[in-house]
Amino acid sequence: MDQLLQWLLFPGILITLALSTVFSFKSRRAADARTRGIQAARMNISMGGMLLFIAAVQLFLSAESTLRIVIGAIFIVIGLFNLFAGIRNLSIYRSMAPSEQTHR
């Protein structure tokens, strides 16, 4: 069971890390505010997923200790916050009309 979790969680961490990096670079290089916001929201979603994967590693693949459980719980809370904030921001920026870009 641990081997299966390792084969699922570690690639998940690496994929979301790569996506966070790509979206971060795209966000910083974007010319307009709408594109910048969309890329930043995607980065937050990816980062939230990465933190959830890391929390799963802490909770399921490590020796059980109070410190690991607390760290895993903190990562879950921060990851869920990033995930939901990214989804909210993505919906806001996608619904923004091109004429509203300059009013940010």
Rank of each mutant, 00 (worst) to 15 (best):
D2A: 13
L4Q: 09
W7L: 10
L8M: 15
P11S: 07
P11N: 06
P11D: 12
I15L: 09
A18I: 08
A18P: 09
S20N: 15
V22G: 04
F25C: 07
K26Q: 12
S27Q: 04
R29C: 00
R29Q: 10
A30E: 12
A30C: 02
D32R: 09
R34E: 02
R34N: 01
T35W: 12
R36S: 07
Q39G: 00
A40M: 02
M43E: 07
N44A: 07
S46R: 01
G49M: 06
G49D: 05
L51D: 04
F53E: 08
F53P: 09
F53V: 06
A55Y: 05
A55I: 07
A55E: 05
A56G: 03
F60W: 06
L61I: 03
S65Q: 14
L67G: 11
I69L: 12
I69W: 08
V70R: 14
I71N: 04
G72E: 08
A73W: 12
F75I: 00
I76H: 09
V77R: 12
L80C: 13
L83F: 12
F84K: 03
F84D: 04
A85C: 09
N89W: 03
N89D: 15
N89M: 14
L90K: 06
L90G: 07
I92Q: 15
R94S: 09
S95D: 15
M96K: 07
M96R: 01
A97I: 06
S99I: 05
S99V: 07
Q101L: 11
Q101F: 12
Q101W: 09
T102N: 02
T102L: 13
R104L: 00
